[in-house]
Design a protein around this nucleic acid. Structure first.
Lengths: 342, 342
DNA sequence: CGTTCGGCTGGAATCGTTTCCAAAAGTGTG
DNA sequence: CACACTTTTGGAAACGATTCCAGCCGAACG
C-alpha cells in the first residue's frame, strides 16, 4: 500500500508551475512543448494518475453506465452485459451492474436512485413495466434506455424485439413438421415477455391453416429452469381429453425449455421423437444441450449492443430525441424438434 | 427530464438555514428536532437527493467495489458476482464489473487503474498470476482480494480452494466405480487452475492403491465448451495402445466436461456406460444437463461471499492485516458417472 | 519604434458535499 | 442574576480536478 496517492497539486509543485498549466499540459491543450515535457516528467516521477472523483465532480460526468436487470443469473442478461460492456469500454465507460428484484416497485426505486448522479446513464431490462416505472424513467436525471418493450410513445428510448412473432415462428415450425397436439409453457403473464409471448401463441394457433388436435397452456412461476420443470410436469400430467398426449411444447424461453425436456424425460418421453420442444433466446448452453435446443433467437447480443450505442449517443448529446431500435427474431432449428417424420 | 437536480445549497436556502445545518439535519446528527423537520420538508419539496460524486470527493469513499474477471461468460463468475453483490449491496455498495482480457498484463493494468480512485476496493479472480500482477496488487491504493490462488505469503488477502484435492476426489471416485482407463482434460497449464488441477491429477493417479490400465492427458485452449469439445475429440482419437478405449474422463471444469460429453456422443459412446465424465465447479446448468453432471463443487457462491466479507472488513478498517480464507472442495455424484456396474 | 495580435501562463472560481471550529443560544445551578 | 456547561448553529475550509479570465511575453507588421 503506497503512502498516499499523488494529486495534481503535488505534480504542479514538483514541476514548479501552476495548477492550471499542469492540467492543461497533461491534456495537451494549449501548452508549450517545454511545459508539457516538464509536467509529464513530474507526473511520471510521482506516479500520478488523475482522481476519477474529482474529475467527475468538475466535469459533471462519471464515465459510468448502469445496467439493471431482474436477475443476472439468466444467461440472456449475461450476454447483453457482455455486449454492452464491449461497446462502452472502448469509449472509456465502466459498467455498473445492478440487480432489481423482480418487482416493479423496486425497479422504479432503482431508476429514482439515478438522481444521486453516480452514473451517466442506465440501460435497463425490466420484467414488468407499469406507469410508475415509466414515469420515473421520464423524470430521470440521466438518459435511460429500455431493453424490452417499445416505449417510443412515452418518449423513452428503447430496444425491442418481436417475441410474439418469434413464438409464431416456433408454432408454425412445429405445425410444419406435423405436430398437432401442442402445449405452450409460458412465464408469468403480467411480465412484458410473458404477455407478448402469450399473444404470439394465441395468434399463431388461431391463424388460418393451423390445424390442431389439442392445445394446452401452462404458466410457470418465473422464467427459470426449476419453475419450468415444475410447470412442465403439470402440463404433461393433464389427462388427454380424447386426443393423445402432447407431441410438441413451445417454451417461452430456453430455461423453461430445458425444464420441459427434463420433465419429458421423467415420463420416459423422448425428445424430439415423442415431444418436440422449442425455446426462445438462443442461449449458448442450448447449443450443447442434449438434444440441442431449437430456439428463437431474439438477438440478445445485438440488442445489448444497440442499447449501448443508443446510450452512447444520448450521453454525448443529452438533447437528443428518444430513439427506437427493433431487432427481429430468427428461428434456429436444432435437434429438439428435428426428429424427422415419425 | 427534470430541469436540474436540487443541491444541498438550494435546500438550505429554501429552509432558510445554513448549509452546515442542512447537512447535519439530513444525517440526523446533532440537529434539533425542529431543524430536522424543517430541512426534511424543504428537501422533500425540492425532491433533493444527495450527489454521490460530491459526497465521494469529500468523504474519500465511493461506495463502489470492482469485480474483475477474465470472462464474465463463465457461469462460475456469474455465481460469484451474485454472491458478492448479495453481501455488498445491503451495506450500500455498488458493484462494478470489469473484464480483464485473459492476459496477465492487462490484468495488472486494471489493478493499476485502481489508482484513479473510482472504487473503494477490488475483488479479482485472475486466471494467471505473475510477479508483476502481485506487485501491482501490493502497491494498489485500495484493498484487493484475490479469489483463486492463496497469496498470504505476499501479504495479499485471498480466498482459495483446494482444486488439486478436488481433482483427486474425482479420480478416486472413478477408480472406486471401477474405471481404469482414465483421461484428463485440462485447460492451459500456465493458468492458476490449470496448474493446480494438473498437480492434483498427477498426484492422484500416482497415489498408492491406484491401478490404471491407461492414462491420457489432453490440454484445451481455454476453459470453454468449444475448446473442450475440440480437445476431447483429440483425446478420444488417440489410438488405444493395446489397452481399450478410455472409460472415464476427468474434466478440469464443467464447461470442458460438457464438451467431453458432446464429443463422446459424436463417437456413439454413451455416458456414463461407456465413458464416465466428471467436471468441476458445480455450475447450475450441470444439474439439468443430460446426463446430469458429476462435479466437484469449489463453492463459487461461498468463495464470492467470503471475498466480499473480507473486502468489507478491509474497506472499513484499511489498517487491517491481509487475511486468508480457504473453501474445501466437495464431490457431488450425479448421473454422468453413476451408471452402476457395467 | 509603437502597436496589435496571438500564444502561454497563473490566479481564482467552481462542482456538491462533509466537518472543524467558534460563536450563539439555551439550560440549570449556586 | 451570574456563571458554567451543554446543545445547536453558521462560517469557512477542505476534497481534486477543470476552465474562465486576465495578464504577460514575444513576434509581426506598419
Amino acid at each position: 500500500m503506497t503512502s498516499t496517492r499523488a494529486t495534481l497539486q503535488q505534480v504542479a509543485e514538483r514541476a514548479g508551475v501552476s495548477l492550471a498549466s499542469t492540467s492543461r499540459a497533461l491534456h495537451g491543450t494549449g501548452a508549450s512543448k517545454a511545459m508539457v515535457e516538464r509536467v509529464r516528467a513530474a507526473a511520471a516521477e510521482l506516479g500520478y494518475s488523475p482522481d476519477a472523483v474529482g474529475r467527475s465532480l468538475r466535469m459533471k460526468k462519471t464515465f459510468q453506465i448502469a445496467f439493471a436487470v431482474a436477475d443476472i443469473g439468466n444467461p440472456v442478461y449475461v450476454e447483453m452485459m457482455r455486449a454492452i460492456h464491449g461497446v462502452l469500454a472502448p469509449h472509456g465507460y465502466r459498467v455498473v451492474v445492478m440487480t432489481t428484484g423482480d418487482t416493479t416497485g423496486s425497479t422504479a426505486d432503482l431508476v429514482r436512485s439515478l438522481n444521486s448522479g453516480f452514473v451517466d446513464g442506465m440501460v435497463i431490462s425490466p420484467l414488468r413495466t407499469d406507469d410508475r416505472l415509466i414515469q420515473e424513467i421520464q423524470q430521470a436525471a440521466v438518459p435511460v434506455v429500455v431493453i424490452g418493450r417499445a416505449l417510443g410513445d412515452h418518449g423513452i428510448s428503447s430496444v425491442s424485439t418481436d417475441s410474439a412473432g418469434g413464438i409464431g415462428a416456433a408454432v408454425r415450425h412445429l405445425h410444419a413438421i406435423g405436430r398437432r397436439r401442442v402445449g405452450f409453457l409460458n412465464g408469468p403473464l403480467d411480465t412484458t415477455p410473458g404477455e407478448a409471448r402469450q399473444r404470439g401463441f394465441d395468434a399463431a394457433v388461431r391463424a388460418e391453416g393451423f390445424a390442431a388436435e389439442r392445445i394446452e397452456v401452462e404458466i410457470a412461476g418465473d422464467f427459470t429452469v426449476a419453475a419450468g420443470l415444475e410447470a412442465a410436469r403439470r402440463l404433461f400430467a393433464r389427462a388427454p381429453d380424447g386426443a393423445g398426449q402432447l407431441d410438441a411444447v413451445v417454451a417461452a424461453n430456453d430455461l423453461l425449455a430445458i425444464g420441459v425436456i427434463h420433465a419429458a424425460r421423467e415420463l420416459g418421453l423422448s425428445v424430439p421423437q415423442d415431444v418436440a420442444v422449442t425455446g426462445m433466446d438462443d442461449i449458448e448452453i442450448g447449443r450443447v444441450f442434449h438434444p440441442s435446443l431449437t430456439s428463437v433467437s431474439l438477438g440478445s447480443t445485438e440488442r445489448g449492443r444497440a442499447a449501448a450505442q443508443l446510450m452512447l449517443r444520448l450521453t454525448e448529446d443529452p438533447g437528443q430525441q428518444a430513439q427506437q431500435v427493433a431487432v427481429g427474431p430468427a428461428l434456429i432449428v436444432r435437434k429438439s424438434t428435428d426428429g424427422g417424420a415419425r
